[in-house]
Design a protein around this nucleic acid. Sequence first.
DNA 1: GTACAACCTCACGTCGCGTGAGGTGCAAGG
DNA 2: CCTTGCACCTCACGCGACGTGAGGTTGTAC
Lengths: 245, 245
Amino acid sequence: MQHTELKVGELARRTGLSIRALHHYDEIGLLEPSAHTASGHRLYTAADIARLHHILSLKQLGFSLEEIAGTLGRADFSALRVVELRLQRAREQLAEQRQLCERLDAIARQLRAAEPVSADDFLQTIEAMTMFEKHYTPEQLKELEARRQALGEDAIKEVEAEWPRLIARMREEMEKGTDPAIEPVRALATRWRELIRAFTGGNPGIEKSLQTMSQQEPQMAWRQGRDPRLMEYVGRAMACLDASK
Amino acid sequence: MQHTELKVGELARRTGLSIRALHHYDEIGLLEPSAHTASGHRLYTAADIARLHHILSLKQLGFSLEEIAGTLGRADFSALRVVELRLQRAREQLAEQRQLCERLDAIARQLRAAEPVSADDFLQTIEAMTMFEKHYTPEQLKELEARRQALGEDAIKEVEAEWPRLIARMREEMEKGTDPAIEPVRALATRWRELIRAFTGGNPGIEKSLQTMSQQEPQMAWRQGRDPRLMEYVGRAMACLDASK
DNA sequence: GTACAACCTCACGTCGCGTGAGGTGCAAGG
DNA sequence: CCTTGCACCTCACGCGACGTGAGGTTGTAC
């Protein structure tokens, strides 16, 4: 009679589990050692160890301890169905994880491209991306990404830098009460439209999404000064452009 | 003075969060409303709402509430570094998730291929795959997978079916005490070697891994009758083959 | 006898809330 | 004035898979 039964420490060492984990499995009834010494020390038999191996196998597949207990409990389950359900769940999680990586990567690229990164810029960048994901379809996002690639970082930066200047000049005219139909404003409105085109690429779906987004998220930081009053002024200037065309 | 401050319910409705979540953020000091009514009802100001948007943005990137609190706490952090660290973590998790999917998919394919799936077969299949992942390098696993693809499911099933028969016949000779150098055994040993070759493809690295695995995991179920005594007999038969070649 | 490792049993902490239980504030209808 | 009903409030436990002590017992060697 060799002492083939193991105590917790030994079993923990051999399986790489912690002693506490084995205690836990005992507590929840997942793996109760079939023997104890007189003083209460746990003794794991060969059968227990085999069961533990099964448990660890199922754990590797991402099943919860409860699911494992259920599966090992009765032997009449459909293995294939169980695995396929688990696989489906895993695939969904994989997709989410992939999306998260893409989000983070996009942010990281943005941050690397724009050198002045105050905490505020950072948060605004993220908020903008969140909004984008909310209001554009994945295809539209891909198209936008493609356009950015094609234009190159420098061109994008130039456009980004032009916006505040354009907004400031437009506001100036509005404050002066200039008629949006006449000249300095006509040129500004034309340029305004061009900058939007540079972003949307003339894609009507993207333009529409941009509109709904700017209507539904009026507090968005990317407006940087495009308040409703100014937007209304710009809208009138645009209308005049169209009318006289 | 418009009542621009929101109560919890309203804010919850607008953000899609639960009331309890907002309470929680208050509890842990992540988002404490800057005002309360006389009766203690929470009043969220525009600034609070802006902060909440920042919180949700960071949450979307997978940061924990504690990390978010820390990030929003002081404004002097390196945004890029934070994001890159998070990205690294996310990539690791993505790799793990991908591996899990592959494991599950492999199991599912196995189960679909072999029609009789008792619970025991199921667990043995998983255990075998776990062992494989432990003892073979990823490249070796890829090569094995490629070989399976090339051979086709049917051929594999035939080989799998032949093993028990071969083992039984070999054991028969051993029980009879047949000299492993003479005929019926020579043929069996030759076939034995062929079946192993069919699996390893003659790759020496894979053969070596197979050896170390069969030595270190003697309790493995895939041995299905290949006990040490039999293995020793087979070893002698192989040696005789080599000697007379 | 005594040191020391290995074992034991509580029991609380983790993370992001869900889910009640039990009470209060406030406006409208009977 | 009283009730109804809704939105709000504050506890406080629960989940999942253990980690991490605290404080006590057992087993073995010197």
